[in-house]
Design a protein around this nucleic acid. Structure first.
Length: 103
DNA sequence: CCTGGGGCAGCCG
DNA sequence: ACGGCTGCCCCAG
């Protein structure tokens, strides 16, 4: 059974300056159809300090949504060194983190 | 480019 | 507790 906490646990593994995707988290959970649920789980638990939800974007490199406002999400990413242009992550692949520790 | 359907844990009535 | 709808999405058409 996959729970919201599993999502948060994976999300917190993303290092500063990197980004990952809803899809990758879903796959790390072993359920590639969970992308939507991943977003909801992050939204449900707004813990900006422990869980950097702003580092999670859509699989096509588009920024995606953010409970506290997309504008804020973009600002946070920029502060960490990830440039966002026209709603897209610049050099998406370069910043992409996908080595999640699962168990 | 836009549209629709899928998937399922949570939220809300 | 019960059922229906939703959601920080994804992909095929």
């Amino acid at each position: 059974m996959v729970e919201a906490d599993d999502v948060l646990s994976l999300a917190s593994q993303i290092p500063k300056g990197s980004v990952s995707t809803y899809r990758l988290l879903a796959e790390a959970l072993g359920r590639k159809t969970f992308a939507r649920f991943v977003g909801m789980a992050l939204s449900r638990n707004p813990n900006p300090v422990k869980v950097p939800c702003h580092r999670i974007v859509r699989s096509d490199g588009h920024v995606g949504g953010y409970k506290l406002g997309v504008v804020k999400k973009i600002r946070l990413l920029r502060e960490e060194g990830v440039e966002v242009k026209s709603g897209m992550i610049a050099e998406f692949k370069k910043h992409l983190f996908k080595k999640f520790i699962t168990r």
